[in-house]
Amino acid sequence: MSSSTPAPSAAPIAPPYQPRRPSTSRFVNVRGLRYHLRCWGELTEDGPPPLLMLHGWMDVSASFQFMVDAMAEGRALIAPDWRGFGLTERPATDTYWFADYLGDLDRLIDAVLPDRRIDLLGHSMGGNAAMLYAGLRPERIRKLVNLEGFGMPRTQPADAPRRLLQWLDELRTPPMLASYETADGVVRRLMKNNPRLPADKAAWLAGHWSAPQADGRWHLQADAAHKGVSPVLHQVEESLLLWQRIEAPVLWVDGALTDLATFWGSRYSREEFEARLATLRAPVTRARLPASGHMLHHDEPEALAAQIERFLAA
C-alpha cells in the first residue's frame, strides 16, 4: 500500500451489552491461590441445587453472562475463573497441569458448597474437567451438563520424546499473548475468533477478557503459560474409566456448525468421540443447536438456557 493510500476505516464498535442479571464477585482461598467466583442469585437451603459453571481454555467466567440472562431466576449460579485466568491469581509456574484443575475444583466445592449435591456444567476444557470430576466424585454431582467438552486426541508412547522436547524448547522461549492498543482491538479480536458474536456482546466481554496495564495497552486476562504444551500425554483409556464412573444424568450439547477438524485436524474424528460417549453408563440426553459453533453460550444463549433448564428440572 502506498503512503498516499488511506487505510481502510475500522468498523464501528457498538455500545456494550447490558446484562439483565449483573453478577457479584467473591474471592476464596483455594490451594494457596486467591480464586475469583462470579455469582448470580443467593444460595438457600431449600432452593434448587446450585449450578457450578466451568469456563473453557482462554476464556473467563463472565463468558456465561448471556446464557445466565436467558435463565429464570431462583437458582444460585456460580462460575469460577480457573487458575491463571480472569481475576483468579496466577500460580508461580511455567507449566499448567490438568490435574490441578481437578484439585482446584474439589477444594472449591468444599469451600463454597460443602455437604451439598450440586449440578455441574462445563464448556470445552471446563466440560472435560467436569466429566472427569463427576467420575471421581459421583456422589457430589446431581446432574452434569457438558457443552462441547470432547476430550483430547489419543496419544501413543512414541509421541513422548517429541512432546517432551517441544516442552523443553518452549521453556527456553516461553509463549506470549498479543496485546492491543485499545479496547476496540480486543473487541475486533473476539469477533474475528467468532464471527457470530454480536458487536455489543463482544464490547461487553472485552472488558472482562482483557484489562489495561501499566504500558497503556490492553492485555488478555490470562497467563501466557497456558499456551504452552503439556509434557504429559493424554491417556484416553484413563479418561474413559472415569467417564464410566459417572452416575449423574448427562446433558450433552453441541453446535451444528462445530468442526472438530478445526481443533485437531485428522487426529480426532467425530466418529471417535461418538464411540467414547457411547461408553457412558449414565443416561445421556443430547441436544444440538442449529446456529451455533463451539461457543454455544455466545451463539444461541436463549436456546442453550432452555435446554439446560429443561434438563435440570426433569
Results as ranks from 00 to 15, higher is better:
Arg310Tyr: 03
Gly126Tyr: 07
Trp167Val: 11
Cys39Pro: 01
Leu241Phe: 01
Glu238Phe: 06
Leu33His: 10
Leu165Trp: 04
Leu257Pro: 05
His297Thr: 05
Leu102Arg: 00
Thr93Met: 13
Pro19Cys: 04
Arg267Asp: 13
Glu73Leu: 13
Thr44Gly: 05
Asp94His: 13
Ile109Lys: 02
Trp243Glu: 05
Leu77Gln: 04
Phe64Tyr: 13
Gly122His: 06
Ala10Asp: 15
Gly293Trp: 10
Arg245Trp: 09
Gln213His: 14
Ser292Tyr: 08
Ala111Met: 04
Asn29Gly: 14
Glu237Phe: 07
Tyr96Thr: 02
Arg281Asp: 10
Ala130Asn: 01
Ser63Arg: 01
Glu309Thr: 06
Trp218Tyr: 12
Ala275Thr: 11
Ala313Arg: 13
Glu300Cys: 02
Thr173Gln: 14
Tyr96Met: 07
Leu251Gly: 01
Leu37Tyr: 07
Tyr180Val: 03
Ala134Arg: 14
Val30Phe: 08
Asp110Glu: 12
Arg117Leu: 02
Leu251His: 04
Ser2Pro: 04
Gly255Phe: 06
Leu242Gly: 06
Leu304His: 08
Ala222Glu: 11
Phe66His: 12
Arg270Glu: 14
Ser292Thr: 08
Phe85Tyr: 13
Pro19Asn: 09
Asp223Leu: 03
Met58Glu: 03
Ile141Gln: 00
Trp218Pro: 08
Ala248Asn: 07
Ala92Cys: 13
Ala10Gln: 15
Pro12Asp: 11
Arg26Phe: 08
Tyr133Asp: 06
Phe66Cys: 10
Asp159Ile: 05
Pro249Gln: 10
Ala303Trp: 02
Leu121Val: 06
Gly103Ser: 07
Leu168Ile: 08
Gly127Ile: 07
Asn193Phe: 11
Tyr101Lys: 02
Pro138Asn: 11
Ala92Leu: 15
Leu102Ser: 00
Gln65Ser: 03
Gly265Arg: 06
Val187Leu: 05
Gln221Thr: 10
Thr262Trp: 07
Val284Arg: 04
His208Met: 08
Thr95Ser: 09
Ala248Ser: 09
Arg142Leu: 00
Arg188His: 15
Arg154Val: 14
Ala92Phe: 12
Arg196Cys: 12
Asp159Lys: 03
Leu164Arg: 07
Tyr268Lys: 05
Ser4Trp: 10
Leu289Lys: 05
Pro48Lys: 08
Arg189Gln: 15
Asp59Leu: 04
Leu113Gly: 03
Thr285Arg: 11
His208Thr: 03
Ala160Ile: 09
Met152Ala: 14
Phe150Thr: 05
Asp104Ala: 08
Trp204Phe: 11
Pro114Cys: 02
Arg270Gly: 11
Pro157Thr: 10
Met71Cys: 14
Arg288Gln: 09
Asp106Gln: 11
Leu233Asn: 03
Arg188Asp: 13
Leu165Arg: 09
Ala130Tyr: 02
Met58Val: 00
Phe273Glu: 06
Trp252Pro: 01
Leu147Glu: 11
Asn193Gly: 15
Phe311Val: 00
Arg20Pro: 00
Ala72Cys: 10
